[in-house]
Amino acid sequence: MVLTVDGLQMRYGEVQVLHDVSFAARAGEVLTLLGPNGAGKSTTIEILEGFRLRSAGRVEVLGVDPAHADESWRAQVGIVLQSWRDHGNWRVGELLHHLGSYYPGPWPTDELLAAVGLTDSAGHKIRTLSGGQRRRLDVAIGIVGRPELLFLDEPTVGFDPEARREFHELVAQLATEYGTTILLTTHDLDEASRLADRIMILTSGRIVAIGTPSELTAAIAGEDEVRWSIDGQAFRKQTADSTEFVRGLFAQYGAELRELEVRRASLEDTYLALVRGQEVQS
């Protein structure tokens, strides 16, 4: 496993922030961490990145305890924050070449530019880039040292739909073509559903669910909702097999059936059910 967390705990004075958090990530996997503000996401990520010491539990990232990691370990870990301050007068290619000089085996600049779709922008000053191009540069900075593990924090905040789609394609490419393991934190449930191989939901310092998007939706959100009308009268039905149920409706009512709508259980339903359930327990 690229990343292993077992019984992670974090306490600030009398406040327990993380309670026995456990999970793992394999090579080339996109693992997404979801949770409301204050759930403990940032604390978890900072511990994994080696920027914060834990109170208890076992953590291994690339086979090393981040609390005792050296510079060679840090060269294998890439981090893309929500924002990165830089000098707008740097040219894209020059900046990546300069940053690459700090690593023992960096991406060749031309190959890196091609990988993130910035070849045509190599000679452009950073301050002239669009939002989507700027975020691609952020990723290039995060992977310039060819990391095995990449942390992405809210990567598409403020993106327009086209830039978001392009960025999602880039993340998928990093995982599938280059084998980069990615730990993504986001509040965008559609983004999580599109990108994640598996999703973890953290709330009140506890992992309350982990699985693929479809597994979580099927296990927790439950049944689909079918709505229809006949002769102006509206009907509604919860069902585990909406396809078979709709087939039966057509067989029974045929052309009389109107305003048919199938609302499938979603990741949002799952997320809200888990978070609200944890809040009630707390």
Rank of each mutant, 00 (worst) to 15 (best):
G205D: 01
G179T: 12
F235S: 10
S72H: 10
G88D: 09
V59E: 09
A273M: 02
A163T: 12
Y103F: 03
L118F: 01
D160H: 02
K237L: 00
F23T: 02
P104K: 00
I47Q: 02
V2E: 04
V226R: 12
E49S: 03
F250P: 05
Y178R: 09
P147K: 06
E279T: 00
H168D: 14
K41W: 02
P106W: 05
S42M: 03
E215K: 06
T203N: 12
R11H: 01
P108E: 04
V30L: 07
T109A: 05
G117R: 15
M200V: 12
V21D: 00
A273C: 00
S282V: 10
L272P: 06
T239R: 12
G277D: 14
R135G: 07
D6K: 15
G123R: 15
R146L: 01
E279Q: 05
R194H: 04
W228S: 08
H168E: 15
G117H: 10
T176E: 13
D197K: 12
I220E: 13
D70H: 12
G50Q: 09
Q16K: 02
D153I: 01
T128P: 11
H68A: 11
L34I: 06
V2Q: 06
F167Y: 04
Y12A: 01
G277K: 06
A163G: 10
T43F: 05
V116N: 03
L112G: 06
T270F: 13
N37I: 10
L81I: 04
E148G: 13
S242R: 15
V77L: 02
T212I: 05
S193Y: 01
D269V: 00
R146E: 05
